[in-house]
């Protein structure tokens, strides 16, 4: 049975801001190795789900289980320490530090000390070197000046990668990506997609919030649609695309195929 146990279980999570229900009894499971895409119109509560799971905001009611352990109500750093990490929609690098020093900080954390960083096993080597290694794997050119530049001078594409790299430095089991594709150019997105696929091959479970449906449907094997803080439907990408309710809520009257080609 234990193989079938989902790595992340979200049960009836509700969040109210004042009188407004941002999340209304959301439940879903994520299995190990899945790439779950969460889509929905703006303001449908996607980011709030991520915030609730990772402990950045306290949910009003409901439970979140990670490998069967209750993690609801724990502080964010404890949850991250267990291996559930996240990226931020609005990038939050340490602007005053060089890119590779940005990674020294997660590598300093207790979890990284235990796991030795993304590829590492056991003891962590020199943090600067490990940081540059991770940056290289994620698409920062090692021999160029880029990893040594201050984060505030980096363009959006690199900052998004840096967000992801910061999660990877912890050797996470689950990554929750909050719109990693938004604000990127087509070519940048095209180079990010293989990265996500590689995470999947590494056995990392990924939950992605995304507006770019075409790329999302390429990497995701399950999709969850949200609307007004409620779960509309969950299923494989094909099932979701075929669903009438989704077409109406998310795309209005437009045809899904058409939206996807324009997206």
């Amino acid at each position: 049975m234990s193989e079938d146990q989902p790595i992340l279980q979200v049960k009836e999570v509700t969040k109210a801001f004042g009188g407004i229900l941002a999340l209304n009894r959301i439940s879903f499971d994520v299995h190990e190795g899945d790439v779950l895409g969460i889509i929905g119109p703006n303001g449908s509560g996607k980011t709030t789900v991520v915030n609730c799971i990772t402990g950045f905001i306290k949910m009003s009611s409901g439970k979140v289980y990670f490998r069967g352990k209750d993690i609801s109500g724990k502080p964010p750093h404890k949850i991250a320490d267990m291996g559930v990490t996240r990226t931020f929609q609005i990038m939050r690098p340490y602007y005053s530090l060089p890119a590779y020093k940005n990674l020294v900080i997660p590598l300093f954390s207790p979890r990284a000390k235990r796991t030795g960083g993304w590829r590492g096993g056991g003891k962590l080597g020199d943090r600067n070197t490990v940081g540059i290694d991770i940056l290289e794997e994620i698409g920062f050119e090692r021999d160029s000046y880029v990893p040594y530049k201050t984060a505030s001078t980096l363009p959006t594409g690199y900052l998004k990668r840096l967000e992801l790299a910061r999660c990877l430095a912890l050797k996470p089991e689950v990554i929750l990506c909050d719109e990693v594709f938004s604000g990127l150019s087509m070519s940048e997105i095209a180079s990010m997609v293989p990265l996500i696929e590689r995470l999947q091959m590494d056995g990392i479970t990924v939950v992605m919030i995304e507006h770019r449906l075409r790329e999302l449907f390429r990497v995701a094997n399950r999709v969850l649609v949200m609307n007004f803080g409620e779960k509309l439907i969950e299923g494989t990408p094909d099932e979701v695309m075929a669903n009438e309710k989704v077409k109406e809520a998310y795309f209005g009257s437009e045809d899904v195929e058409e939206v996807m080609t324009h997206a």
């Binding site: 950045f56 964010p76 404890k78 320490d81 931020f88 690098p93 900080i105 997660p106």
Partner: peptide
Amino acid sequence: LVFRAVKDNDQAVKASGMSI
């Protein structure tokens, strides 16, 4: 460096699994 990170951006430090 961690101290400076706390000043720069404490949310990200939390997300890295460290108690600020």
